[in-house]
């Protein structure tokens, strides 16, 4: 049995951790060969080329972290017509292009967690915050930003002053962070729900000698943020466990490929993780984001 995992792009700590989790699952399930692949640039067109070769190889199931929720649909439909079980994980595909979607966490939870972290980081629990996102077209980030905006009324002490985009490029993210610091001299927190943006923002604050005055939080990998936790520019940040995510994606895809039925409303066991329940749209959120701080980051940095 061959299960294919299609990442958004290869070459990041995050996709590496997903691969690790997938390998654990395939070893545990037995007789499962995992194919871990992805395009050279994070584009839908690149993923389609990869998907076409997977369809040709007649794999049993495909789990894809989509670069675009709509553009992959026709290709994935064709895969399903040829008997391949398709799920999306991490970043969703529209319902008609997959059987179910395995979300690392619900958008609302991510938004709420980011705001809680911002409040915890802000001196005195109040002040101005700004969001530094990935590209303006990143679907995941946009959903989280929308969730943050709708959760804002529950945090009246926080004032969202700007949302800027670093395009997941280190230099642009760094420059946008510097511009935020200049535009809002009394900024308290930068929230960056993207692993490249959060590192660049932390570096910018350290370089401007604003450590202790402005803080960075958001979503990132412990291994990439350990240095900034130690430097003091980041107090705490959040992420789900990408190893668990990879593990769950492979386990779920294998279940489907072995003939299990699932869909909206169903609950599926996921080995050591427990189980996941799919809602009416066929989305199964796994867990609340895990919070990393000075106490546990070093330990997790060794893993992912």
């Amino acid at each position: 049995m061959r299960i294919a995992i299609v990442a958004k792009q290869l070459g990041s700590g995050y996709s590496d951790a997903i691969r690790k989790g997938g390998e654990q699952a395939s070893a545990e399930l037995g007789k499962v060969q995992m194919i871990f692949t992805g395009p050279s640039t994070p584009t839908a067109e690149g993923q389609i080329e990869v998907l076409n070769t997977l369809i040709a190889q007649q794999v049993n199931a495909i789990a894809v972290a989509a670069n675009d929720p709509d553009a992959l649909v026709p290709t994935l439909k064709r895969a399903m017509q040829r008997g391949i079980k398709v799920i999306s994980f991490d970043s969703a595909v529209s319902p008609e292009g997959r059987i179910v979607h395995l979300a690392p966490s619900s958008d609302a939870l991510v938004g709420e967690t980011c705001l809680q972290l911002a409040q915890a980081a802000a001196p005195g629990g109040k002040g101005k915050i700004a969001i530094l996102s990935a590209s303006a077209t990143a679907t995941n980030q946009n959903a989280w930003i929308a969730a943050m905006q709708s959760a804002l009324p529950r945090h009246p002490d926080l004032q969202l002053v700007a949302t800027v985009y670093g395009d997941d490029l280190s230099d642009k993210s760094y420059r946008e962070a510097l511009a935020l610091l200049k535009r809002f001299p009394d900024l308290a927190v930068i929230v960056a729900p993207t692993s490249i943006g959060i590192v660049a923002a932390a570096k910018a604050i350290e370089d401007e000698h604003l450590t202790g005055k402005v803080f960075v939080t958001g979503l990132g990998l412990p291994s990439e943020l350990l240095g900034h936790i130690n430097a003091g520019s980041v107090k705490s940040f959040a992420l789900w466990n990408p190893i668990d995510l990879g593990y769950s994606a492979v386990t779920l895809a294998t279940h489907l490929a072995r003939g299990a039925k699932t869909g909206p409303g169903a609950t599926v066991p996921l080995g050591r993780i427990g189980s996941v329940t799919f809602d009416q749209a066929g989305t199964g959120p796994m867990s609340k984001p895990f919070i990393f701080d000075g106490a546990n980051t070093a330990e997790f940095a060794k893993i992912f």
Binding site: G11, D16, V199, S223, E224, L226, G227, N230
Partner: peptide, 13 residues
């Protein structure tokens, strides 16, 4: 990509 095996080298390293 090949010499780094796709991994990042981060600030703490």
């Amino acid at each position: 990509y090949l010499i780094s095996a796709g991994r990042w080298i981060n600030s703490d390293q």
